[in-house]
């Protein structure tokens, strides 16, 4: 056994050396300019419907610098098959905003929060559904909204969001999950924790919906099964200080939050929950 441990230690060293990417920035740490989420009031709609998109931006290290945004919409160029997510060069491109100033970020929210909303109207049936197969009309065709945030120093963040447009005959469409609370050791978080705590998201009723999809043979079922599926909720834990052992948790999963040694003047805890069909919910705390 002793020898095995020695070999084990040697292998640990081997793996650590071979896979040394520990120093890269953590996904869930709020620091540089980034888009945290593009929330759509209704993630799946009928052709021609209008939606409102609420971007969530973080620029914690920006200290209140001026930010602008540009937005456009277009038919999906085939992003899920590898095409670059952009509306540039697309004949269907519709400009939504160009160089508009971003408002809504301040020191009180640590320059992290919801900003100017976008109003988008999806194309009508003849455009959005042109040359798509019936199963795609049922399962939904993506309409793309691109959103770019720029800072005066040239820093730029590109993002995009799909609006799922499905056949009006599909009555039950996807809805956003809701996050009602963030719990710290089972109690809604109310102050910056002085010691390590377990963070957990509480979801609103019906957040994880049951759903079906139309398969290639025209039958109804879940992909990979003949019966329906239930959405899997994945929550990303954005924090402005401290550290979590997991960046994301699944369902009711718990992540251990370890605070910084000194309590920050302001800190942010944001849980962004994605269902696996494009629905997004968000709950944030400023502590």
């Amino acid at each position: 056994m002793k020898n095995l441990k020695l070999v084990s230690a040697w292998f640990s060293l081997l793996l650590l050396t071979a896979c040394s990417n520990k120093d890269l920035p953590k996904y869930n740490h709020l620091d540089s300019l980034r888009v945290l989420a593009l929330l759509i009031d209704t993630p799946e709609v009928n052709p021609g419907d209008a939606v409102v998109i609420t971007p969530w931006i973080s620029d914690t290290n920006g200290a209140g610098r001026a930010l602008t945004y540009t937005a456009a919409a277009c038919l999906d160029p085939g992003i899920s098959y590898g095409a670059t997510p952009t509306c540039e060069g697309s004949a269907s491109k519709v400009s939504i905003a160009s160089g508009s100033a971003i408002a809504g970020l301040n020191a009180g929210n640590l320059y992290t929060g919801a900003v100017n909303t976008l109003a988008v109207t999806t194309p009508v049936t003849g455009i959005i559904f042109a040359a798509h197969r019936p199963i795609e009309l049922y399962n939904g065709v993506a309409y793309i909204v691109t959103y770019t945030v720029s800072a005066s120093d040239g820093t730029k963040v590109d993002s995009f969001r799909r609006i799922i447009v499905s056949d009006p005959s599909k009555v039950t469409k996807n809805a956003n999950p809701t996050v009602t609370q963030i719990l710290a050791n089972g109690i809604e978080i109310a102050a910056y924790p002085g010691t390590a705590v377990n963070l957990q998201a509480v979801y609103g009723a019906g957040s994880a919906e049951s759903y079906v999809a139309k398969k290639d043979d025209g039958s109804i079922g879940g992909l990979g099964t003949d019966v329906g599926l239930t959405e899997s909720l994945t929550t990303t834990w954005f924090i402005s200080s401290g550290a979590t052992d997991f960046i994301r948790t699944i369902g009711d999963g718990i992540t251990l939050f370890t605070p910084d040694s000194s309590t920050p003047a302001v800190s942010r805890f944001i849980a962004v929950t994605h269902d696996n069909r494009g629905g997004v919910g968000l709950k944030d705390y400023t502590l």
């Binding site: 980034r34 888009v35 989420a37 593009l38 992003i79 670059t84 997510p85 952009t86 959103y147 963040v157 590109d158 993002s159 995009f160 969001r161 799909r162 994945t234 990303t236 994301r248 962004v272 994605h274 494009g278 997004v280």
Partner: peptide, 15 residues
């Protein structure tokens, strides 16, 4: 040379 945030899937697509 960059990444584009995929807000549906909470990930970045490389450029």
């Amino acid at each position: 040379v960059g990444g584009i945030f995929d807000a549906d899937n909470d990930t970045y697509i490389p450029v």
